[in-house]
Write a protein that binds this DNA or RNA. Structure first.
Length: 218
DNA sequence: ATCCGGATCGCCT
DNA sequence: GGCGATCCGGATG
C-alpha cells in the first residue's frame, strides 16, 4: 500500500511523535526534542534534519515568550492544542518554527534553533544560496526554516504527520551529551536557563563562550 | 573571535 | 512609533 511505499522510500525517518509527547512540561519537551527529526515536504521536495538545539518558552509569565502579550491574533496558536506548529515572522524577513506544548489554555512552545541536515541537502543548499559550508545551512532558527521551506503558511498546522511539517522520533540522546544555557537573543528573562543543545555538535547555532552553560547532569 | 550596522515589516503600546 | 525568539557582511583586535 501507499504507506509501505512511503516508508520504504524514507527508511531513515522514524514515526511521527504523538500528541502526548507535547502534552507535557515544556522544558522536558525541549530536552526530549533533541535527537528528533524535523521534516518538511513541499512540491519542491523533502528536506529533514536532526534537532540539535531548542529553547523553551514557558507561558505568559515568561517575558521572552510571545504569550507574554496575552491572547492576540499573533499568539493564538500558542493557546492551541499541543503538537501543532507556531510559525512566526521576525525582523521583517525570517520565519521561525516552534512546537506548541502542554494542554489547551497553557500557552507555551519549544523553538527549534538548529538542525543537523539529514535529507534533501541539494534542496537546502539551493534555498539557502549555496553557502560555503553545509554547517551554515541550518545552524539558526531562521536559517533552518529557509532551508526546509517552512513559512507562515504552516502556522497552526499539525506536526503529527498529516501536514507538510512533521516531527519524527530519532535516536535517543544521553543526558551526558546535553548542555543547558540561557536563551539566545532575548532581553527579558535573559538569564533563564531554557536553552538545550548537544555538546560539541558543529551544527549548534553558536557555541556559547561567554554564556553560562552547564551539563544537564553534572 | 567579537562587535557593529543595515535590511525590512508585523505587532503591540 | 518602536522594537523584536535573525542573518549577513564588514571592520577591528
Amino acid at each position: 500500500m501507499a504507506d509501505a511505499a512511503l516508508r520504504a522510500r524514507r527508511p531513515r525517518l522514524g514515526a511521527p511523535l504523538p500528541r502526548s509527547f507535547y502534552d507535557r512540561d515544556t522544558e522536558l519537551v525541549a530536552r526530549e526534542l533533541l535527537g528528533a527529526v524535523l521534516e518538511c515536504v513541499t512540491p519542491e521536495g523533502t528536506a529533514a534534519g536532526r534537532i540539535v538545539e531548542t529553547e523553551a518558552y514557558v507561558g505568559e509569565h515568561d517575558g521572552a515568550c510571545h504569550a507574554a502579550a496575552g491572547l492576540t491574533p499573533r499568539t493564538r496558536w500558542l493557546y492551541g492544542p499541543p503538537g501543532i506548529a507556531y510559525v512566526y515572522f521576525i525582523y521583517g524577513m525570517h520565519w521561525c518554527v516552534n512546537a506548541v506544548t502542554r494542554a489547551e489554555g497553557l500557552p507555551s512552545a519549544v523553538l527549534v534553533r538548529a538542525l543537523e541536515p539529514l535529507a534533501g541537502l541539494p534542496l537546502m543548499r539551493a534555498r539557502r544560496g549555496e553557502p560555503a559550508r553545509d554547517r551554515d545551512l541550518t545552524n539558526g532558527p531562521g536559517k533552518l526554516c529557509a532551508a526546509l521551506g517552512i513559512t507562515g503558511a504552516m502556522n497552526g498546522r499539525s506536526l503529527l504527520g498529516t501536514g507538510e511539517v512533521t516531527v519524527r522520533r530519532g535516536a535517543a540522546v544521553a543526558d551526558a551529551d546535553v548542555e543547558v544555557s540561557p536563551r539566545i537573543g532575548v532581553s527579558r528573562a535573559a538569564d533563564w536557563p531554557l536553552r538545550y543543545f548537544l555538546r560539541d555538535n558543529p551544527y549548534v547555532s553558536r557555541t556559547p563562550a561567554r554564556f553560562p552553560r552547564r551539563a544537564l547532569v553534572p
